[in-house]
């Protein structure tokens, strides 16, 4: 009797532990990075790069347009 009770208790404990493991086992995401606010550093870095690339692209665009205008004048 005593042993069966112990076994039952052990079984319930195992089950509850498994249930616990399932709820806590959510996929790992960059939550810490987000709560630290450090993901914003990455975003700002990317925005800087994008700004640079776009600025360069617009400069080339402008240059091409100027060349075309000069071509028409000739």
């Amino acid at each position: 009797m005593k042993w069966t009770r112990l076994l039952l208790l052990f079984g319930i404990l195992c089950l509850s532990a498994q249930g616990h493991a399932q709820t806590s086992g959510t996929p790992e995401m960059a939550d810490a990075l987000r709560s630290d606010g450090k993901i914003y550093t990455v975003v700002v870095g990317l925005v800087i790069i994008l700004t640079g690339v776009i600025f360069y692209l617009i400069r080339i665009d402008r240059k091409v347009q100027r060349i075309e205008k000069n071509q028409k004048k000739q």
Partner: peptide, 27 residues
């Protein structure tokens, strides 16, 4: 071209900050 620039900024900022599904392995 202006549309392209605006959409690029949106996808870079939104791509990092908007919610995504939480999945194993992919994370």
């Amino acid at each position: 071209k202006i549309l392209c620039i605006v959409l690029l900024y949106y996808s870079v900022v939104g791509g990092f900050l908007l919610p995504v599904p939480r999945l194993f392995i992919l994370n």
